[in-house]
Design a protein around this nucleic acid. Structure first.
Length: 394
DNA sequence: CGTCTTTGACCCGCGC
DNA sequence: GCGCGGGTCAAAGACG
């Protein structure tokens, strides 16, 4: 952090009039980058001379000329330092951007080692549309289900923009968080709040404010039974390009929805009520209580909702399904969780007071769903269909 | 001054 | 038809 301040201060040197410089400073050393930064900052402090020193110099014209020369040299040095620091800043910015895109790059790299990974080419061009059968290392039923899921999934998502019945389909995500909002990479504008029946916690209504007239809305509410559980419900598709941090969430919700809407998932166990269930299999490496994901589908004719429960304990093996999304513990995590830089996107009066943020208590939604994406090939494929749907709509 | 949040009012669908 | 509850609107206030 100190480095950032130094850079900031140093970059201001160019803005200062040259006549304020002093000749009492030594030339900044450049043994290494860090030394350079620190010394330049120190140099700048010295260079910000007082008027008193300038007045003293007026007594000797020859000395003034010498000073002018020194000042020019120092100015040139300062400019060089400035260029170096700008280059370093650009490098850091590039690294930051690269890290943000790491999940998708890792998926791409992983698939390049498998035969004909044409679906991943879509990630290169965001405006691509899924039209071919993606080939992935699937086995048995996964292949059949995958084909169905991807084609129908893409169709379902695309249809959502035209069919009133499916446009209302929702994806609900349950996750533990001490804060009222969890970062998903998007910008939201609150437009309402209600106290729902049976839950003392208010339900907040948000609208996506990243695009003009974006139809996406979300509801945020704490669970009545466990106020540490935050329930976030998404509805609709974005009509604008999404920033990298928002893509995992957007594609996951749409992919999950498309998989269920396509009807390609069936339960091998008697349905609980009218619910279909799918074990998504989150990573065991995820910290805290989140180690297993469970999706619940409520096929209400007017408003089908899929719930991704990221709060269930890992030993919950009470449900088994036709499609096996179980974890392959021998395989390393294909990409690292990209952190919670955008974890807290806002707090309102219903937020809990700021407490020590730990990964356990404040898992980023994009991290959680990113893990789900990474572990399941067909889920990834559905995500690609979703991404294509999103970007193709713009 | 512009943007965002808050909050009461209003609308609408659904069940009785 | 009526009441209830969920969802949305919009004016007022807060905030930077």
């Amino acid at each position: 952090m100190e480095g950032e301040v130094s850079v900031k201060e140093f970059l201001e040197v160019e803005e200062r009039p040259s006549h304020t410089y002093d000749n009492n400073t030594g030339s900044p050393q450049r043994n290494d980058e860090e030394t350079s930064i620190n010394k330049s900052t120190v140099g700048f402090n010295f260079l910000s001379l007082s008027l008193n020193n300038s007045e003293k110099a007026q007594g000797n014209q020859g000395q003034q000329l010498t000073q002018a020369g020194l000042l020019r040299i120092k100015l040139e040095e300062a400019k060089k330092e400035n260029q170096n620091l700008r280059a370093r800043l650009n490098h850091i910015t590039h690294q930051y951007t690269t890290l943000q895109n790491h999940p998708f790059l890792a998926m791409k790299k992983q698939q390049q080692s498998s035969p004909a990974p044409n679906y991943l080419d879509l990630l290169k061009k965001e405006d691509a549309i899924v039209t071919e059968k993606p080939t992935m290392p699937l086995e048995g039923d996964q292949i059949n289900n995958y084909n169905h899921t991807t084609r129908e999934g893409a169709k379902s998502i695309a249809d959502q923009a035209h069919e009133p019945s499916t446009r209302k389909a929702r994806v609900s995500i349950r996750a533990r968080s001490d804060y009222f909002l969890m970062g998903d990479g998007c910008q939201w504008r609150k437009y309402g709040q209600k106290i729902a029946k049976g839950n003392p916690c208010p339900r907040a209504y948000y609208r996506c404010s990243m695009g003009t007239a974006c139809p996406v809305r979300k509801q945020v509410q704490r669970c009545a039974k466990d106020d540490t559980v935050l329930i976030t419900t998404y509805e609709g598709n974005h009509n604008h390009p999404l920033p990298p941090p928002a893509r995992p969430m957007a594609c996951t919700t749409s992919a999950a929805l498309s998989m269920f809407l396509s009807g390609s998932i069936t339960s091998t166990t008697p349905p609980i009520g009218s619910t279909k269930l799918l074990n998504l299999g989150l990573l065991p490496s995820l910290s805290g209580s989140v180690s297993t994901g469970l999706a619940t589908f409520s096929p209400s004719p007017s408003c089908p909702t899929i719930t991704l429960d990221l709060t269930l304990p890992s030993n919950d093996n009470s449900l088994h399904f036709q499609r096996d999304f179980s974890l392959d513990h021998s395989q390393p995590f294909p990409f690292p969780l990209h952190g919670c830089a955008q974890q807290i996107v806002g707090m309102n009066s219903y937020s809990k007071p700021p407490t020590a943020i730990t990964p356990e208590k404040n898992l980023c939604l994009t991290d959680l769903v990113g893990a789900a994406i990474a572990k399941d090939p067909s889920f990834k494929a559905a995500c690609v269909a979703a991404i294509s749907s999103f970007t193709g709509a713009t």
